[in-house]
Amino acid sequence: MDQAIDECVKKKLFSANDFSDVVEYLKRQRSLKPDSISQHPVHRPTKPLSEKDSSVLLARPSTRDPKEYEEVFKGAAV
Rank of each mutant, 00 (worst) to 15 (best):
Q3E: 05
Q3G: 02
A4K: 01
A4S: 00
I5P: 01
I5D: 02
C8A: 02
C8P: 01
C8K: 03
V9N: 06
K10C: 02
K10P: 01
K10Y: 04
K10R: 04
K11P: 01
K12N: 09
L13T: 03
L13P: 00
F14G: 04
S15L: 05
A16M: 07
A16Q: 09
N17C: 11
D18V: 00
D18E: 08
F19S: 05
V22W: 02
V22A: 02
E24A: 15
E24C: 14
Y25I: 12
L26Y: 01
K27P: 00
R28P: 11
Q29K: 06
R30S: 07
S31M: 11
L32C: 12
K33N: 11
P34G: 03
P34Y: 08
D35Q: 10
D35R: 10
S36Q: 14
S36I: 13
I37R: 03
S38A: 12
Q39Y: 13
Q39L: 14
Q39I: 13
H40V: 13
P41K: 03
P41M: 02
V42G: 05
V42E: 08
H43P: 11
T46P: 03
K47V: 10
P48N: 04
L49N: 02
S50N: 11
E51H: 06
K52A: 11
D53N: 14
D53T: 13
D53C: 13
D53R: 15
S54D: 15
S55N: 12
S55C: 11
V56E: 14
V56L: 15
L58E: 14
L58R: 15
S62D: 14
S62P: 11
S62T: 13
T63W: 11
T63V: 11
D65H: 02
P66D: 05
E68N: 04
Y69N: 09
E70M: 08
E70I: 09
E71P: 00
E71C: 04
E71W: 06
K74T: 05
G75M: 01
A76R: 09
A76G: 04
A76T: 08
A77M: 12
V78R: 01
V78Y: 02
